[in-house]
Amino acid sequence: MKTHGIAVMALLLTAVALTACSPASPTLKSDEDRLRAELNLKPAKWPLKFKEHTFIPLCYSTLACKVSYAGPPWIDDKPSPPSSTYGPKYLDHIMGGHVGISNFPDPAEVTWRSMDGVEHKALIDIGAIFRDRVVRHNVPREEVAELVHGKLSGNPLILLEVNDRTIRVYMRAFIPTKHLSDPDNPLSDRRDELVLARTYQY
C-alpha cells in the first residue's frame, strides 16, 4: 500500500508539473499592445481609398468668382487679391470646408472673371479626376502607420483653386506615419501636404 501511495503521489506531481509547463493563453506584452488590440489597429489597406471627402474652393486674382458643388454656391463678388499676397506657401494652412460629401456629386460649376475682365465658365468633374477613389499622398507604403481597421479615420480634403486664368485641383489627406519627421516634435508623426491632381488653363 505504501508503494502504491508513493506512485499516486508521483503521478499527481507529474500532472501538476505538466500543467505548469503547458503554453499559457496569449498575453499582451505592453500597454501599447493592449491599446493596439482595443483600437483594432492593422496595417494600412493598400492603396488608401476614400468614400467621402471635404471640399473647399478658393479664388485669387479674380474680379468675381462663384463655385457651385455639393450644396449652396460659394460666391466672392469682390476682386480677390493675388495669391502672392500670402507668400509662396499660401495654400499650406488651408483647412475646413464642406465636410462629409459622398463620392461623387455632379461636377463643380465655376464662373469667374479673370483680371483682364474676361468672363469664364468651367465644369470641373471632381468624380472623374478621382474616379479610382485613391487617396493622393506622398507617404511610402512601408512608412504608413497602422490604422483603425486598416483605414484612414478622416476624409481627405479636395481643394479647388481659381487663380486668374488657371484652375488647380488638389488633395490633402492626413497620413499617420511610423516615424517622426522632426525628432524634436512629437506631433510630427503624420504628413498632410497638398498634392496637385489636375491643372486647367483658360
Rank of each mutant, 00 (worst) to 15 (best):
A24R: 13
C59I: 12
S22Q: 02
V144F: 09
I94D: 02
A145H: 01
T85S: 15
G87R: 06
E32I: 14
V135A: 00
Y86E: 07
W74E: 00
V110H: 04
E38H: 09
G87C: 02
S114V: 06
K49W: 08
P82A: 14
D76C: 11
F50R: 03
L28R: 14
I101H: 08
A64M: 10
L48D: 00
S25Q: 15
Y90S: 06
T14G: 08
P43H: 04
Y69G: 00
A108Q: 06
A128M: 12
F130I: 03
E32T: 15
D33R: 07
E119Q: 14
L28C: 06
L28M: 13
W74C: 01
D92G: 02
D106T: 09
L18A: 15
V139Q: 00
R113I: 00
K66T: 09
D125N: 15
D125P: 10
S68K: 13
A15T: 12
R113S: 11
H93V: 04
V135D: 00
D92R: 13
T54A: 07
A70I: 04
R36D: 14
P26L: 09
I101N: 05
P23W: 01
C65L: 01
M95K: 08
K78A: 11
T111P: 00
A145F: 08
V110N: 01
N138H: 13
R36C: 09
S102D: 12
A44M: 04
P107K: 09
D31I: 13
P105I: 04
S22P: 00
G127W: 07
A108V: 11
P73N: 09
T62R: 03
R141F: 04
A108W: 06
D132H: 10
R34Y: 04
I101W: 07
E52L: 11
R34I: 10
T85L: 13
K29A: 15
G71W: 00
N40G: 15
E119L: 04
H137W: 01
D33H: 02
A37W: 04
P23G: 10
K121Y: 11
T27K: 11
K51L: 11
L39N: 12
V99L: 11
V118G: 09
I94G: 01
K78L: 15
S22F: 02
A122E: 03
L58Q: 03
V118W: 04
A145G: 14
F130W: 06
Y69Q: 06
D106L: 10
P73L: 08
D33T: 07
G87F: 08
P26G: 01
W112L: 03
E119C: 07
P57G: 04
S114M: 01
P105E: 08
Y69P: 03
S84L: 05
G96Y: 03
I94A: 04
T85D: 14
P26R: 14
Y86L: 11
I129M: 08
D31H: 08
T14F: 14
P140R: 13
L39S: 09
A20H: 03
H93D: 09
A15G: 05
V118N: 13
V99T: 13
